[in-house]
Structure formats: C-alpha cells, structure tokens
Write a protein that binds this DNA or RNA. Structure first.
Length: 943
RNA sequence: GCGGAUGUGGUGAAAUUGGUAGACACGCCAGACUUAGGAUCUGGUGCCGCGAGGCAUGGGGGUUCGAGUCCCUUCAUCCGCACCA
C-alpha cells in the first residue's frame, strides 16, 4: 500500500518536472547553469575605457593558505561583489578583481617540513581557493587575476624597489626625487641645504664631495636613498640557524624547539617611510577611512612636538642627547635613562659599575622587544656610575640604563621627570631615587601628574610660569645656548624590508666589492632560483646564500641573498589589476589615469598600520616620480569585522574513552576536547559521526542527557587547529550560493565582528523559496501576469527600492536583506504576481542573489542578461502618505496614538489631540504646561 | 601601561538629525494541512504582573518636554601594540 502510494507520488513528480522543468527552485541546477553561462559569455570582462563613469571596487587579496577559504573570508568578498554589481546596474564601468598574495612564510615552513616546493603548494592552494571562490558566484574579472609570486608580476615589484633605491626625499620640495639630481646638488653645493636623513653628522662641501672615492660617495648616497641598507637587530636563534619573527619568539626562546634567541645585528634593507610621515598624516584628511582607522594610523605615525637637549657628562667629553615633549619640566629632571643598546653605555660606565652593567646587558639581551613592551610592572635598570649635568642649572643627576627606553625611538635617551611621568616615578620609587616636585600641590607624592596646566615651582627662571609657556621659554633659551632645538618627532620607524627567507621576491641588487648596485632594468626580473634545500644559509642568511652559482656572478660580484617581506607585493597590487598583462611597464599611465584610485577597498583591521601604510607610501613615491597621477591609493576603506569561530567541546572522563554530556560533566573529572563543529548540530553531537571522525573515538561511549550528547561552546579565533572552521562549500551545496551570500550579509553589519553561526541560514533560504513562488507554482507553473499594479503594490515596491538602494549604497547590507524579506512578505500577502512589480524586484535582487535573479529574469521572457538591466528608480509619489499615526506622549511617555493628516498645522494638531477622549482621560484635568509638536513625528504633552 | 572597538530579548540584530525601543530573521509555543516531514501555512513570543499597570538598550549620574543615541563616570569583553618619553 505504502509502496503504491510512494510510487504514485514519485510518478507524478517526474511527470511535472518533465513538463515544467524549471517550476521548482532547483538552486543547484540554476547556479551551475548560470555560472557556466557567465563564463562563456565573458559577462565579467571589463574594458579599460568606456563612456560610462568608472568605479574600482577592491578586496584585500588573500594569502592562499593550505587551510583553504573559510566562512570568514567571503564576508568582505560578498560585500564588494554586491557593491560592484550594484554599481554596474547603476551604469558604471566597474573594475572588480581578485588575486593572490602568494609569497609568505607558511609555504616555506611547509617546504622545510615536507620538502614540497613552495611554488607547488602555492599553486595547489590557489586552485583550491579559486574553486571555492567560483562556487559563490563572484563577478571578478578573472582575466586580470594576479599572483605576487609570478615572475611576470614580481618583475615590477623589483622595478618599483629600484625606483625607491634610486630616489631620495627632498625635504624642501617635500617629494621623492631621483638620486641623480641629488648628486648634481652635491657637486654644486655639498649637502648644506639637504642634511642627511640617515646620519646628521655627515656634512660636506662640493669640493669634499668631488674628492670622495666612489665607495665613499655611494656610502653617503645610501644614507639618503628611500630604500637603503642599515644595521639592525634581529632575533637570532643559533640552534635553528635562522632569524625569527617576533611571533616565533616566546619568553626569549624559539616557539619551535624552545631554543634560546638572542639579538644579532645584521645589515638589512629598509624603506625610509619616516620621510613620508607627515604626508601620510596629511593624506588621511583626503580619504574616507573610519575615524577609528585614521586614529590608529595617526597613533602609529605618532607625531609629537618637543625639543632635543644635550646634557654634558661629568668628567667626560661625551654628551647625552635626549628628546622630550616636555622641555618645561627640565628642572624636575632627577635622573637620565638611556637605552641599554645606546652607544654611550660603553663610554660612560665607570669601572665600579662595569660588572653590574655587563650583567644587566646580558639580561636585556635575552629579552624580546615584545616582552620589554608589555611587562610594565617589572621595573629593571642599572646605574652606569656616570652623572649628567643639567645645562640650565648645573645640577648633577645619575645616568641609568633601563629596558623601558628603546634605542629606536627619539635619541634613545630620556630625561626622567618622576613628578610628571608615571614610569619615571615608578622607576624612582623602585630604586629609591629622590623626587623633585616642580608642580607644587599638583603632585601628591603618591603618583606622577602629567598635567600641562600647573604653575612651575622649584624651577629657577621658570618659577611662577605656566607650563605651556615655560616649554617655549626653555626651547628659546637652549637654542640661544646652542645646546638644544625645537624638534618634531615621529614614533614610526623606518620599515625593515629584508627577510632571511627563500619564498619572497629576490632583491634586484648586486654587490661589487661590497658596494650595492641596482640590477639593470633589462635584466629584470631577477628570478627566484629553484632550490631543493630550504635550510638557512650561513650566519642567518637566507637559503639563497647556499646557491653559490647563483650568488657569485663574477669574481667580486655577488647577489643580494635576502628576499623582500610579505608586504612588498601587496604594496602596489591594486595598480597591476588595471593593466595586468603589460610587459613594458607596471601599469600604463593612461590606464592608471582612467581607473585612478580604488573607490572602495574592503578588508580587515589587522592591516590598519602595516599594509595600508606601506601601500600608501608606495603610491606617494610613484606619484612623486610621475608614474601615476594620484597620491592616495584608496579613496574609501571599509573594515570588515572578523568572523570568529564558535568552538564545540566534548568532555572525556579522565583516563577513559567515555564522554559525558555538557550538563552532567561536573559530576566527573573530565578533559574538554575540541570537536569538529561540522559534526555538531547546534550543540547536539552526532554521535555516529563523532565515532567515525577519528580512530581513537571509534569505541567511544557516551553519557547522555535526554538521549542527546550536548556539547560545550566557546567563541575563539576561527582556525583549523580548533576544529571550528566552516567551509563555504558545504553551505553552498546545501543551500546554494544565493542563500549563502544573503545569509552572510544578513548576519549583521559588515564592520562588526561576530562568531559564525549557521542557525539562521534557513530563514534566508525560505525567503528565496518564497520569492520563487511569487513567480512560479510547482503545479501551475509560471504565474506571472501582466496586470496593472495597484497603488498598494506600488507602495510596497517603491518602499523597497528606496530602502535597498540606500542600504546597498551605504554598505548596510543586513538591512537591505531584511527589506527584501519585508517586500516579498508583503507581495505574498497581496498575492501580487505582476511582472511590472516583479521585474524591478529581480533587478534589485541581482547584486545579492544573481543566480536566481538571472533565472527568473529569463523565465519571464528576457533574452538579455539581467546583469546589465537598469536599476529601478524610486518615485516618492507611490509611497507618500496623507495621514500619520502620531504617538501621543504625556510627560515624554507614549500613552496612545492618533492618526491625523500630515498636512495639518500645529494648532490643528493640538486641538485635535486635546479633543481626544483618551488624552483627556490621561490628562485627568491637570493643567497643561507645554505642548511639543514635531510635525510628522510625535506629540508630547507636558503637565 | 597605551591605542582602537563592542555591550540592546533565549539568539543574530533593527532604530537619518535626540522623537512609538526590539523591524527582519533564528529559536521556542500553539494550531492547520499531511501516510509522513528537516516541506508549507496561520497565530503567539522583551521582562514582571491575573489585571490596571510597571520595568527594560552593561552599571551609576547628568543635560532635555523627550536619551539606545549627547555629556561625565564606572564595569565587562574583544582586537592591536613598538613601555614612544
């Protein structure tokens, strides 16, 4: 009987699907069909010229990691995809592209462990990423795909590096200029007009310049170049024979293996980004970044105004130069602190203190910079035995070294004013140093007071003077005495640009007798040689140093063996998309003039100070040198929030293979173990899948509650290691790309971070099915009519147009999705199947759910793709109301409401409200004190 | 320690300029249809209260006729960092 019926139903189903093959929402078939169609018709090819206005919409391109794409990646990609499609419908020529930031440490690390060449794993990972991206139906112009590890791409990364190498920053014209121009200046007038940014001590006349050897001249030029060589400390791990990133060092030992890590000075490349500090700061005024983002960049650049002051050392010819933002506090200086790395340490330490200083230096050597920054409560330091002399009153104060003063900032030395600076105060307390109070009652003796508004005391000629005024007086006095000067300082440091690694861009630099020269342009790219062994070279050099045939070009001629850091390729990739196949230049000037700035750039905040500052700097350099016509790369920036993982836990009873459900776990001694979120439905574990998940769990037993195993949960970073990653492919195959796209948007504002939760996806899927039913009925087939729409239907449509247009334009995609739902719900209630209404709905929907929109568009008879349809225009006349339901409040609390004409004036409204019985009841005869009427908003009666 | 962000129902969230807090969803409850349903549809759902009503946007204070929104203060959570003088 049951079989009979079942077969019967099946038969009818088959019959109907054969007769009306498209009448149910078969998203799998629809999405596959249109994705193929779009590829075949080159639907997303973009031309570099058009009569339409241009719009450049860009994602931060991904590093193709082995873990593949997780649901966090597409959040930003879907946003830009919607925006790009929206702008296209609005009549723009839209550049929307994707590529891969393919150089990086993980691939090299993997190669070290497995012997697999990074090029091979990278290519494999890119393939995976591409498949995952294609699944979601993005409108990228894939003919413009780029890969930073492709020689055809990094040829131009190297070329731009050479532009930096061949340039200097002219502080007079405030822009980068060719080194050859600088040489002409030196030949004419020496460097008196252009003090050396790398070393202020360097001063010479034209005659002296001409007398220098080539080596000497090039040494000097190196101090001016925007890409330059200098010595800097790196984290050196002797046991691993390699240099480590800060991340890889934990508590002074290597993360891998736990070997000791010390600092080692190495000659490395730097970018002189500090010369651009002020322009990077000013440029922020011209771009649309969030205030938070601008604030972070400003803080990173860290412009401060202050003074440099020289202190003599007692019984010595040496001087300590300090930078301070508070010259007004100079009479409150109770001691000096210099960085342990400071070159003066050797010179001024007294014999009695030598042993203590040596011991302290050894201690500092073991401390990572990160530790020195974050461990504030631990106060350490050591007295050098030397005394500095306050230049204004001759007071002698002890000179200490301490790790809280860093060599890289300012002059690497500070004058300590314990009554005004908390760190100095703590230091003085800890070492029992006397504290001079120069701010009277403002200083309690219990903590420092960094005020700028006190009246100075105990301050010699500044007594009774306001601090702000005092600062100026001190600077003038010091300048007069020739021992100090006003100085603007930036906390940003020059950017380290060398990595002792294999998987990065080789430098286009050769050394002749130790002097660096640029590789000729015609010899670019300097290709990364293929190697079999990824082990580091001698003395911490990169693996390239091992390839002697490659390194040694001729006797006395060697290649640079460092490679460029991860951010090299990403600092200019947005330019390459414009003209990706050009072999003559990185991007044709006419084409980059056409596309100009990226109009909207979307990516995570983690790049706030790295990538975004570097790419802004590179853009400015290329602009200065005349290669492009704009000096800020990104006109508008949207920061997508981080999708966090929502981890699930099972609780194993200690020493057994038995797992106890969350609610009962406290009755046992258990260990919490991460379990793959993909085998958990909500918090309910699929026990069978769990057993199959890993061999060790095959025989697992369970203590259930209500016949279910309930998992614990916690929000953590989404990571393969925590088994909380969700692959978009799984969701796409279950619900379709359109549902997935809309669900990611429906989750909340793009900018907001939130844990991933698949729960609500059903609601979005239901919405699309409901939309489908406005067009087609499984039994009756297509139900769209040509009837004229009613005012009510037009109102629903135009309310939706208005809301969705505005929401899309302002990246408020979550509210747009809800507007779609409201629209479809309303049309369903109205039984509206009219093409006049539905056509517009489909166009509105195209950016969000392009596959279903295109399918229905074709179903209702269009031959042309919906991708180029004209965006509906909102007409206010359809949504206008004549009445408004006023909330009536008494003393600010809403008590009732009244529907009144919108054009009624205030007097009329007041009369109508007071005449209302309900209102009279609430007023209860109390005298009216005030009536507040906001037309079209609310009415408030104050009694 | 510094910098940035975020706190609204059981959950994700919504709320132009200060003007009806909780739209839209998820979940849950009840019901309809159905052999069945992880399908579809209808109704309900912030909290307390039988009710009138009261209370609600992390806590406390303030400005205002009116505050999720503005100001002060405080707590919690997340992210970043180079103790930046």
């Amino acid at each position: 009987m049951i079989t009979w019926l079942g077969l019967d139903v099946l038969y009818i189903r088959l019959l109907t699907t054969q007769l009306q093959p498209y009448m149910e929402y078969n998203f799998r078939a629809i999405e596959k069909k249109w994705q193929e169609q779009w590829v075949n018709s080159h639907a997303y090819r973009v031309k570099n010229d058009s009569t339409k206005p241009k719009c450049y919409v860009l994602d931060m391109f991904p590093y193709p990691s082995g873990a593949g794409l997780h649901v966090g990646h597409p959040l930003g990609y879907i946003s830009t995809d919607i925006y790009a499609r929206y702008k296209r419908l609005k009549g723009y020529n839209v550049l929307h592209t994707m590529g891969y930031d393919a150089f990086g440490l993980p691939a090299e690390q993997y190669a070290l462990e497995t012997g697999q060449h990074p090029a091979v794993t990278t290519a494999h990972n890119i393939k995976t990423f591409r498949e995952q991206l294609d699944n979601i139906g993005f409108c990228y112009d894939w003919s413009r795909e780029i890969n930073t590890s492709d020689p055809a791409y990094y040829k131009w990364t190297q070329w731009i590096f050479l532009q930096l190498f061949d340039s200097w920053y002219n502080r007079r014209t405030e822009k980068a200029e060719a080194i050859s121009e600088l040489v002409k200046i030196f030949e004419k007038e020496g460097n008196s007009q252009h003090p050396c940014p790398g070393d202020r001590q360097i001063q010479f006349t034209a005659a002296q310049w001409k007398g220098y050897t080539e080596a000497e001249q090039r040494d000097i030029l190196m101090q001016y170049r925007l890409a330059f060589l200098a010595y800097a400390e790196v984290n050196w791990c002797a046991a691993l024979g390699t240099v480590l990133a800060n991340d890889e060092v934990i508590n002074g030992v290597s993360e891998r293996g736990g070997y000791p890590v010390v600092k080692k000075k190495m000659r490395q490349w730097f970018l002189r980004i500090t010369e651009y500090a002020n322009r990077l700061l000013e440029g922020l005024e011209t771009v649309e970044f969030s205030d938070a983002m601008k604030e972070m960049q400003r803080n990173w650049i860290g412009k401060s105004q202050g003074a440099e002051i020289k202190f003599n050392i007692k019984n010595s010819d040496e001087q300590i130069e300090v930078y301070t933002t508070r010259p007004d506090t100079i009479f409150g200086v109770d001691f000096m602190v210099i960085a342990p790395e400071h070159e003066l340490v050797k010179k001024i330490t007294t014999p009695e203190q030598q042993a203590a200083i040596d011991a302290y230096l050894e201690y500092v050597q073991s401390r990572s910079e990160r530790e020195r920054m974050s461990e504030v409560k631990q106060i350490t330091g050591c007295f050098t035995g030397a005394y500095a002399i306050n230049p204004l009153d001759g007071r002698e104060v002890p000179v200490w070294i301490a790790e809280y003063v860093l060599a890289g900032y300012g002059t690497g030395a500070i004058m300590a004013v314990p009554c005004g600076d908390q760190r100095d105060f703590n230091f003085a307390r800890h070492f029992n140093l006397p504290i001079t109070n120069i701010i009277g009652d403002a200083f309690t003796g219990e903590e420092a007071n960094p005020t700028k508004d006190a009246i100075l005391q105990n301050s010699n000629f500044l007594d009774g003077i306001d601090m702000r005024k005092g600062a100026d007086m001190v600077i003038s006095k010091l300048e007069e005495m020739g021992i100090g000067r006003r100085q603007i300082n930036y906390k940003m440091r020059d950017a380290g640009f060398s990595r002792q690694r294999y998987w990065g861009e080789p430098f286009p630099i050769i050394y002749k007798d130790g002097i660096p020269y640029a590789v000729e342009e015609k010899d670019l790219p300097v290709e990364l040689p293929h190697i079999e062994n990824y082990k580091p070279g001698p003395e911490g050099e990169g693996p390239l140093a091992n390839i002697t045939d490659w390194v040694n070009i001729a006797p006395g001629v060697k290649r640079e063996t460092n490679t460029m850091p991860g951010y090299a390729g990403s600092s200019w990739y947005f330019l390459r998309y414009m003209d990706p196949h050009n072999t003559q230049t990185f991007a044709d000037r006419q084409i980059s003039d056409y596309w100009n700035q990226v109009d909207v750039y979307v990516g995570g905040t983690e790049h706030a100070v790295g990538h975004l500052l570097y790419s802004r700097m590179w853009t400015k350099v290329l602009y200065d040198l005349g290669h492009i016509g704009f000096h800020e790369p990104f006109r508008k920036l949207i920061n997508q929030g981080m999708i966090q993982g929502s981890s699930r836990f099972v609780y194993r009873v200690r020493g057994t293979n038995e797992f106890v459900s969350y609610g009962l776990k406290d009755q046992y001694e258990t260990d919490a173990l991460h379990v793959d979120v993909n085998i958990v439905d909500g918090v309910v574990l699929d026990v069978e899948k769990f057993k199959a998940w890993r061999n060790e769990y095959a025989d697992a037993t369970f203590i259930l509650e209500n016949d279910q195993y309930i998992c614990g949960q916690e929000v953590e970073k989404m990571s393969k290691r925590l088994f909380n990653t969700v692959n978009p492919n799984d969701l796409v195959s279950r619900y379709g790309a359109d549902t997935f796209r809309m669900y990611e948007m429906f989750l909340g504002p793009v900018e907001q971070s939130k844990p991933w939760d698949t729960k609500g996806i059903e609601g979005v899927h239901r919405f699309l099915k409901k939309l489908w039913r406005l067009f087609a009925d499984e039994q009756k087939g297509l139900v769209v009519t040509s009837d004229n729409p009613t005012p009510e239907e037009l109102k629903v449509l135009h309310t939706a147009i208005n809301k969705i247009d505005n929401a899309t334009n302002s990246f408020s995609f979550n509210t747009a999705v809800s507007a779609f739902m409201i629209c479809v719900n309303d049309l369903t209630t109205l039984h509206c199947h009219k093409r006049n209404i539905l056509e517009s709905v489909l166009i509105l929907l195209t950016p969000y759910a392009p596959h279903i929109a295109e399918e229905l568009w074709q179903l209702i008879g269009f031959n042309e793709s919906i991708l180029n349809a004209p965006y509906p225009v909102y007409k206010e006349e359809y949504t206008k109301e004549s009445d408004f339901t006023y909330p009536i409040a008494i003393n600010g609390k809403t008590k009732t409401e009244m529907s009144l004409p919108l054009d009624m004036d205030e007097a009329g409204l007041q009369a109508a409200v007071l005449a209302n019985e309900q209102v009279q009841k609430y007023l209860d005869g109390k005298p009216l004190r005030k009536v507040i009427i906001v037309k079209g908003r609310m009415i408030n009666l104050v009694v």
